[in-house]
Design a protein around this nucleic acid. Structure first.
Lengths: 351, 351
DNA sequence: CTGAAAGCGCTTACAG
DNA sequence: CTGAAAGCGCTTACAG
């Protein structure tokens, strides 16, 4: 297999120069006669030289500093608890390589806090950034700043077009809506109606909820068996009182509802509601393996959860940044992770 | 974060000896006065010393040799094509670390070939082995030999109890049967019957088909809604003629069949049969993302496929062996990978 | 039983 | 513009 790797020493011998000169050419540090440089470049190419990373790292002690800017996980949104775990795992695995991670978090409810924290990140002078671009306009401004400073950044959870990101790792949001559509179509009586519930203060701004709903509905436009009505509501306040009022109303007005699609991660709120009013015949599908969502999945009130591998998102984010920084490896720009279909019988494997 | 790592040099200074002596203690190479040794061990402990792997590898050039013994992938069983990919990826990722892999394959249909190949593996004097223990008694003999030679081995795809394996990475076979049961229960009319099809020359010997079927049936014993009959047949020969004869018979005798569970990876054979006789109302579920299985999934003839992440199995196998060999890290003995539920809408993410 | 030295492949000053 | 030397942290002979 390995025909013994070419070393700088070998290149130097072949070119009739010292290793210092070879090193200067390799790293383009100048101070080399044009003629010598050409010759060395030629040999480098012929021998297909690549440096011994071990020796490089051992010598240089240069540590890359990666900063993450992700939402602060809360009781109600334990989804974001998974991301730090993935990042730590990546760093563990990269172990002997010098990599420092600073985690900055922001309040998922506050554009202002997000904006302040982007300034914090900039001040840390990172070599690379991992970012969940929750707030669009603020994110765009931040990305511009990073580009200007030549700091590479990776999106997870969602991405913004026309920015200069190094990579995106996460869900294909539209398609995950279609998967949910297909599953509900399978378990819903052909003539029953289907309710789409978005829970969000301002649905306009929540890009991925919109996109999922679009994907979900698209499945019924061209592929599904179900012929029932599709009802679409937005609940602007996740308090149990508002949920009850809004849900009571829609269910009374639409007695034919057979299934409910919740476009975000708060399906447990609807499951709780259905449990309270004792309506067990309705099929529920939602997103993300929050503890409360899993509880209702295991209770049989929620039929399916769709998982989007939060831990793998951030794990791969770190890995790709590191490979780019240390080996100059350009990753695939968009990596869609599988849309996981989770039921009470396979959920334990995902926890 | 890092308070600068303790080096051998530091230990030596603290103990008032030279670095050579410290090294002798660390590697237990003897030739050290008991008193000195004690002192150094004490300091090692206090400082929580761990070596710089970079420097270690750079110096030693010791390359670990891993040998895999897996079935030869064939047209009909492209499942085993995925494993080499996973292993190559692991080696790529481990890059600067010296790791050689030799892949030995055997004929999935031949106990004799398997046995011959175990001898081949032994002759290669590997530092570690990755093994799919397809044939039980032959595998046990092989494992005994490996244990005697103190060669660590990792199982994938299945494992044999009471052997001295380092780790197993793969499916929870029984549980994956339950998942299939749950899915079919969801899409099958309560009163319809369910057919279980095993395709195998000798069903006795095919442990995992049995186990899956047991898991599948267990779901209907204690959890399912479906009240129909459960019919269980074994087709001993995968030729299309035998399939047709056997299937014609069972369908004629059981007109109430609403769904079919295929315990192995050859669901495409049954899908092809259903396509030919034009029976489209039956729900089909099977295993593994073979090209042909995926074809019938996309055509809508197969409802669900269950995936078991073949690539990840072997990827993790290599990683765990390497970590054990180089860092002496003992892995979790059994790691069940998630049971993936795959439909026509999410299958592309898994390919 | 112990220490001093050489060397793994690379990078970084420094001398000329 | 170029070369020789020191050193990253470890391991491996070798001398005593």
């Amino acid at each position: 297999m390995s025909p013994r790797k070419t070393r700088i020493k070998d290149i130097a011998r072949m070119a009739g120069v010292s290793i210092g000169t070879v090193d200067r050419v390799i790293h383009n540090r100048g101070e080399v006669a044009e003629k010598t440089k050409k010759k060395i470049l030629q040999i480098l190419k012929e021998t297909n030289y690549s440096p011994n990373v071990l020796a490089q790292v051992l010598k240089s002690k240069k540590s890359y500093h990666i900063v993450s800017l992700l939402p602060e996980p809360t009781e109600a949104n334990s989804f974001w608890k998974k991301h730090p775990i993935g990042m730590e795992r990546a760093i563990d695995e990269l172990d002997p390589f010098p990599l420092a991670l600073t985690q900055v978090t922001f309040d998922l409810q506050s554009e202002e806090d997000f904006q302040n924290k982007t300034a914090t990140v900039i001040n840390l002078k990172p070599d690379g950034v991992i970012l969940a671009p929750i707030f669009k306009s603020e994110s765009i401004a931040f990305c511009k700043h990073l580009s200007k400073d030549k700091i590479p950044y990776v999106f997870i959870d969602g991405f913004i077009e026309n920015t200069d990101f190094l990579a995106y790792i996460g869900e294909n949001i539209f398609q995950s809506g279609r998967v949910a559509g297909q599953l509900l179509d399978m378990v819903t009586d052909e003539k029953k109606d289907i309710l789409v519930v978005n829970i969000a203060r301002n649905i306009q701004n929540v890009h991925h909820l919109n996109n999922r709903t679009l994907g979900f509905l698209s499945f019924f436009e061209n592929t599904a068996v179900n012929k029932g009505k599709k009802i679409n509501i937005t609940i602007s306040d996740p308090s149990s009182k508002t949920i009850r009022t809004d849900m009571d109303k829609v269910i009374e007005e639409n007695p034919g509802i057979g299934s409910i699609f919740i476009s975000g991660s708060k399906s447990y709120l609807i499951a709780l509601y259905l449990e309270e009013i004792g309506l067990k015949s309705i099929n529920l599908i939602g997103y993300d393996l929050l503890d409360l969502n899993v509880k209702y999945l295991k209770l049989g009130i929620t039929r399916f959860l769709i998982g989007q591998r939060p831990e793998e998102q951030s794990y791969k984010g770190i890995k790709k940044l590191f490979e780019y920084l240390s080996l100059n490896k350009i990753p695939d720009k968009i990596e869609y992770l599988p849309v996981d279909i989770v039921t009470s019988e396979n959920v334990d494997f995902f926890l």
